[in-house]
Amino acid sequence: MKVALVTGASSGIGEATAVELHKAGYTVYAAARRVQRMEGLAAQGVKVLEMDVTDDESMVAGVKKVIAESGRIDLLVNNAGYGSYGAFEDVPLSEGKYQFEVNVFGLARLVQLVVPHMRAQRSGRIVNVSSIGGKIYEPLGGWYHSTKFAVEGLSDSLRLELKPFGIDVVVIQPGAIKTEWGGIAVENLRKRSGEGAYKEQVRQLSAFFGQVERGSEPKVIADVIVKAAEARRPRTRYAAGFGAGPILFARRVLPDRGFDALFLGAMRHAGRV
């Protein structure tokens, strides 16, 4: 039986992914800080791990536990992450660094811990949950988009680096999904920049987020992750969820100024609704 480790599994995409991989026959280890929120997963037969992706000891212990109990790791789903928004001049560097700790360095450390086991078995798959935000940009989202651009670049390099060892690296690019992400992003946005020079942009972007939060269910992304995990020859990237296809298409075909105008126009429209 294949063994999967899924981070950020206490809610949203991670929780749905743990469920769907379990249904697909995997032994699933669901990892998150909030173990109490994973009681439902445990009741379904998913193994739960307390893990903080900003705590090295926590990650080392988690991977050791998986190996001790199951002897292998076939699939790592790096899903843990969050969105921190605010005008760049308003966001403390400490918050920017923490955003990278969660979204990039936690992911990177788990790759370091898991790859030796995958190399030894000459097989494995690493699925990094990025975002369409790894290819596009928004005002007031400089730190968040920086982290997702980093995940995209890191994943591309890893894909080539690990190919000789039978290890695939896949990027998932969700669009708008009904999760806690949007609420957290808007809360941070208003806290950092809700008053002052950027308050009109905050109002418009908050309204825009309110519209896109009518997005797809997390299971849509979970199903894509299972597809990527099971494919004999997976694609390098899978984009899914509300708006993902059209937005990424627009980014590919429009020049930068054209995409700027498109996005700012959508924000202004949302602010008038």
Rank of each mutant, 00 (worst) to 15 (best):
G8W: 02
S11F: 11
G14P: 07
A16G: 09
V19R: 04
G25M: 14
Y26G: 01
Y26L: 05
Y29I: 11
A30S: 06
A31N: 13
L41T: 01
A42G: 13
A43W: 09
Q44M: 15
G45Q: 08
V46T: 03
D52A: 05
A61H: 08
E69F: 08
E69S: 12
V77D: 01
N79R: 06
N79V: 03
G81V: 08
G83I: 04
Y85S: 14
E89N: 12
V91I: 15
P92V: 06
G96P: 08
Y98L: 11
E101C: 12
V102S: 10
F105R: 10
V111P: 01
L113R: 07
P116S: 11
M118I: 08
R119S: 03
A120K: 10
I126Q: 07
V129W: 06
K135L: 06
P139S: 03
L140A: 04
H145K: 12
S146G: 15
S155E: 04
S157M: 14
L162E: 01
L162T: 01
V169T: 01
I172H: 01
E180P: 00
I184K: 06
N188I: 01
L189W: 04
G194V: 06
E195D: 12
G196F: 07
A197N: 14
Q201F: 09
Q204T: 12
L205K: 08
A207Q: 07
F209Q: 05
Q211S: 09
R214V: 02
G215Y: 00
G215E: 00
K219G: 03
V220E: 13
V224W: 01
V224Y: 01
I225M: 13
R232I: 11
R232L: 13
A240K: 12
A244H: 03
I247N: 02
V253L: 15
